[in-house]
């Protein structure tokens, strides 16, 4: 009986190792396959040149730029709002019905399918505003998607600040608001930065919410024209702006180019590389900021 249960234990351990092995192997094969398939497109020409309609050899320059610009704009919108809401939840909100409702809303928003948020964006930022498909509309829609995430990250980062730091600041006569701005938020920066970079990576790959808000076309961009108000300038946020992730989907479903397969392979490889970069950068920055901040406090 004893031997039986021991061999069952051994067998179970082996099974658990196999499961974990399969998971790691799957990821390795997945990433390796994408990089291998996209290898001959990982060159500067593909990354920077514009797509060519109906012909081979087009690049993804405008789409990549649109993705980056959209990430930037949406963070510009989400960060102040999300951080404020996070401060409210961490510092001011008392356990009450209203607080519970806010928490429920955060949960509900963050679990909504992104296509539904995209349709909300279509109603508000495309139809109601009359902007049609614009980069700005896309950025605002993605902000709705991100807001609950950033709020939660901010709240967690603020709550993780050691209470003694806050108490010391209050004991020195600082007001609550001063303590928040000058002590809590700066101490929460390591946690904030890591979370924000990881969220940024997710925006970079978002597609469903952007199909009907930022559109599936990208006008010809003149990178010499940097006036954000002029038509055809890449910096103009009120133009249709297809992002890289949307392009992968579109090039497959609409067959715009004979080398659609190659384009999708290359663009996927670039998205994967971007995901890795975001992950690594988040880790490195998080660690170094953490060391810097804790180092400072120990010296005092």
């Amino acid at each position: 009986m004893k031997i039986k249960s021991q061999s069952a234990d051994k067998a179970a351990t082996i099974v658990f190792y196999i499961i974990a092995g399969i998971v790691v192997l799957l990821l390795a094969v997945f990433v390796g396959y994408l990089l291998y398939q996209g290898r001959d497109r990982l060159n500067l020409h593909f990354i920077f040149s514009a797509p060519v309609f109906g012909k081979e050899g087009g690049g993804i320059g405008p789409q990549l730029f649109n993705s980056l610009y959209m990430v930037f704009l949406s963070m510009l919108i989400t960060l102040p709002i999300g951080l404020s809401a996070g401060i409210y939840l961490a510092e001011y909100a008392k356990p009450s019905k209203v607080t519970n409702i806010i928490r429920f809303c955060i949960e509900a928003l963050s679990s909504l399918p992104s296509i539904v948020i995209g349709l909300f964006g279509l109603l508000i930022f495309v139809n109601l505003t009359g902007w049609k498909y614009t980069l700005m509309g896309g950025a605002l829609t993605v902000s709705v998607l991100n807001l609950p995430v950033i709020t939660r990250i901010s709240e967690d980062a603020l709550r993780n600040v050691s209470p003694s730091i806050k108490e010391a600041s209050l004991a020195l006569g600082a007001t609550h608001w001063q303590t928040i701005l000058k002590v809590l938020v700066p101490s929460a920066i390591p946690g904030l930065v890591t979370g924000v970079i990881l969220t940024t990576g997710r925006v970079f790959g978002e597609a469903a919410a952007l199909l009907y808000t930022a559109g599936m076309s990208s006008p010809v961009l003149h990178f010499s024209n940097l006036n954000p108000l002029s038509h055809g300038s890449p910096l103009n946020p009120f133009r249709p702006a297809e992002t890289l992730a949307v392009y992968i989907w579109q090039v497959n479903s609409e067959g715009l180019a004979p080398d659609a397969r190659k384009i999708a392979d290359g663009a996927s490889a670039i998205l994967i590389i971007a995901v890795f970069l975001f992950n690594i950068v988040a880790r490195i920055i998080g660690r170094s900021l953490n060391a810097k901040f804790t180092g400072k406090s120990s010296r005092k």
């Binding site: 997945f30 396959y33 994408l34 597609a207 469903a208 996927s268 995901v275």
Partner: peptide, 16 residues
């Protein structure tokens, strides 16, 4: 590994 799985965009999953 799990963090990277989360980060991979859904269109890339679709494409593979």
């Amino acid at each position: 590994a799990i963090e990277i799985f989360v980060g991979i965009p859904s269109v890339v999953y679709g494409w593979v």
